[in-house]
Design a protein around this nucleic acid. Structure first.
Lengths: 339, 339
DNA sequence: TATGGTTGCGGAAGCGCTTCCCCTTATTTA
DNA sequence: TAAATAAGGGGAAGCGCTTCCGCAACCATA
């Protein structure tokens, strides 16, 4: 707690018997320094347990090695955390840090925070959406490299990384078809959610590809077990011979599984069930546990940050959207041999 | 993306027709500046949409207005996010930012990150534990003010903010007693978890206070619905006339409620159920929804950061642990009039 | 031996800001 | 009216670092 003053580069230089300039070069770059002096400087630095003053460094060099991470609404979107963690893992390797700020769902705050972070001298911005709809693009106002994740933006030239919900749904349905199911229903979240829409499109598309149709209509509703139980009961009533339910999320799938089991049907033998998200507290806790799609959010965050670095480094990064396919995770709700 | 150079204080000063010194004073402090000049400077600043270069400011003043937030293991602990958000709300008011880093559960990383953040010039450190046990104290190695949250530390002189699990459990049990329950069982998480231990102690303590004993032994287990269903069945078999189950978490309570209902018993009429956490996806989704204890994590994070600021400001803050009581949230699982 | 290129190093400027301290002018007090 | 005080403003130093550029010593080439 006693803020013992840190040793400065000047002191290191003095101890090593060189100029500050030389010390700086020795520590940072390889440029025109003999191995001998570099060793000497580094040894001195170690002896003083020198650590550079990053604020000064940033001021002098014009680069801070800090990026800003803007969360649109971390309370709403539990998915933000995994992406941030994925981003951090890349940051760490490159000796970058992240200042994190959240906008609590307010778009204007996002812009403000972007400006605030630029004042802080961040080298770039990673904007994490909440998958509830478009993010208003702050690229223009921020005036530093921006990469968006988990939400489309209002500017088509932005660099955006998204999960490919359409492809994910196709993958799941194909898996259901592979195990011989043909009467497939779809119970999912609120219709206004882009993710929900894409998944629904994926489901119907995959079925059409195989000359099939959805069993009943798409059941849009809420991200809620309570609602899902109800919806599933309706599906079972309307289409008693349904042999699979593709659910819009693990939360819904967990409730669906409960509702299906409650009617005496066996999962997966009578009715196979798939979720979406690989959200452990649901996917691993049902009995049997859920076949689902893992969105590889950490990977998504990492990929986005990599793009951001390229931009910070001055490389031209093509604008536009990159879609990331997730990974199918097969468990007992579709494969009787698994738990 | 075109990094348009930011206007500097010098330019503002020139436009306002004053010296840089005066401009600085006008913008930052009230010290010995006439209202007229201050207005003039501020107007100039606004016209140029001046924003201070915080790196330079920090270098010159020795304070960065940034704190470091160290997460011990954000993947394990979903509770970290609310605390961080609570902290952010205070930070924002004080015009501070937070650099966030996570240690992925490794104590040594925590120390390293502490050092790294000091290099970055952070003014203080908020260390967020994962409630899985003690955090190794980094106060000594960090050499800047440190406040810990959600986990005790190895150094009793550290400033630590904790949820009072004991008091929370007492509150819940008292509520059960209030509604006339006397045969109360306790199904909870892993015994090695400090939170679990404290809650169990609270439960038995509250019962003793009223001359009662727990119905059966404490059922320690896992944070898992699957396990909780099983445990609840056992409880019902061993103590068929049990009239309340205090659960160690909402996750467990959700499964307990399911298991109780499956036996034909009514909740809350036959068996009242309480959870812990007020974790929406469980507490609000059972039928009826769960009476539970909200730990006010945002408030906890905010309180911790307030202490940190006091320390940064040079105020003496007494070391030791502060316990935060949560808030009882009554819902249908104990009160038949509620959903 | 003269010429040019290379290598290793340091002096000095400057990044944008705060702060110490001194100077001027206006205001009060004796 | 002179002297003491307060108030407003600016000059200059300095925070710790990077980087531009100049200088000396060394090497290779013809």
């Amino acid at each position: 707690m006693d803020t013992a003053r840190q040793p400065t580069l000047t002191e290191v230089a003095r101890l090593a018997g060189v100029s500050v300039t030389t010390a700086s070069k020795a520590i940072n770059r390889q440029e025109r320094i003999s191995e001998a002096t570099r060793k000497r400087v580094l040894r001195a630095a170690r002896r003083l347990s020198y650590t550079p003053n990053l604020a000064a460094k940033s001021l002098a060099s014009g680069r801070s090695n800090i990026i800003g991470v803007l969360l649109r609404d971390p309370m709403v979107d539990r998915l933000a955390m995994p992406m941030v963690i994925g981003a951090q893992s890349v940051l760490e390797q490159l000796e970058f840090s992240a200042i994190i700020a959240d906008a609590r769902g307010v778009d204007d705050r996002l812009t403000e925070l972007g400006v605030m972070l630029r004042q802080r001298g961040v080298d770039g911005l990673l904007i994490v959406g909440d998958n509830q709809g478009a993010i208003s693009s702050i690229t223009a106002s921020a005036k530093i490299p921006c990469v968006y994740v988990h939400g489309p933006t209002s500017n088509s030239r932005d660099v955006v990384h998204l999960v490919d919900d359409f492809a994910g749904a196709v993958t799941l349905v194909n898996h259901l078809l592979d195990i011989g199911r043909t009467r497939i229903a779809h119970v999912t979240g609120p219709k206004h959610s882009p993710a929900v829409q894409q998944r629904a499109l994926g489901v119907t598309h995959a079925l059409h590809e195989h000359g099939l149709r959805l069993a009943g209509r798409v059941r849009y509703g809420l991200w809620s077990q309570r609602w899902a139980r109800q919806a599933t009961r309706e599906v079972l009533a309307k289409v008693p011979n349904v042999d699979a339910i593709a659910c819009g999320s693990d939360q819904i799938a967990a409730a669906a599984l409960e509702a299906v089991t409650a009617t005496g049907r066996k999962v997966p033998d009578d009715v196979a069930i798939t979720g979406y998200d690989n959200w452990t507290v649901f996917a691993q806790e049902t009995d049997p546990s859920l076949t689902t799609l893992d969105m590889d959010l950490e990977h998504l965050g990492a990929a986005a940050v990599s793009d951001l670095f390229a931009m910070i480094g001055g490389n031209r990064v093509g604008g536009g959207t990159r879609h990331h396919e997730g990974t199918l995770v097969i468990r007992g709700s579709t494969d009787p041999r698994l738990p």
